[in-house]
Simulated scan of single mutants.
Amino acid sequence: MLNDHPKKYHELIGLMEQLGSKIPGTMEAFEKLHISGTADGVLHKKTKELIALGIAITVRCDGCIAFHVHDALKSGATPNEIVETIGVAVLMGGGPAVVYGCEALEALQQFSALSD
């Protein structure tokens, strides 16, 4: 196992709460941006979470991968949709995206195991 993504997800929530106590305006604005940016519109929340996951893979953000795999599953994405999203990220990000795509696959397996 490269990372414990569920653990990372929960640790980051705690750290973001701590950061919010230090810079409340910034973190409140970020939370509103996240809520607004992923809300159902012409694109459904699930689609937006899959897009965010693809971006997270291509920019190589471990924490973002944990969050967006978790949130994509919570929004109704299937494992096959997540795997296809990894494929598009590899197309756009090349070799480094393969490595982070593996991270996303590992996160998918770990979060899926929790819901079994």
Rank of each mutant, 00 (worst) to 15 (best):
A39M: 11
I35Y: 09
L33N: 12
I35M: 11
H44S: 13
T58R: 10
D62F: 04
A66Q: 06
I57M: 00
I51R: 05
A39H: 14
I55K: 12
K32F: 08
A66Y: 01
C64K: 01
E49M: 13
V59N: 03
T47W: 05
V42F: 14
T47R: 14
S36T: 14
D40H: 02
T47N: 13
L53H: 01
M27L: 10
C64Q: 02
K46G: 11
V42M: 14
S36D: 14
D62G: 13
E49S: 04
D62E: 12
C64T: 09
T47H: 14
G37F: 03
E31H: 15
A56F: 00
A52Q: 06
H70Y: 08
G54L: 01
E31Y: 08
G37Q: 10
A39K: 15
K48T: 02
L50S: 01
I35G: 15
D62M: 08
L33A: 14
G37K: 04
K48F: 01
H68P: 00
L43Q: 12
A52S: 12
D62C: 12
H68E: 00
A72G: 06
G37C: 04
H44I: 11
V59I: 09
G54I: 02
F67M: 05
A52C: 08
I55G: 04
A72M: 11
I65R: 00
K46C: 10
V69G: 03
D71S: 15
A72C: 13
K32I: 04
H44T: 15
H70T: 10
T47L: 06
E31A: 14
I35P: 13
A56G: 00
M27G: 01
E31L: 08
T47E: 13
S36M: 09
C64E: 05
H68Q: 02
V42I: 15
A66R: 02
A56I: 01
H70N: 13
E28F: 04
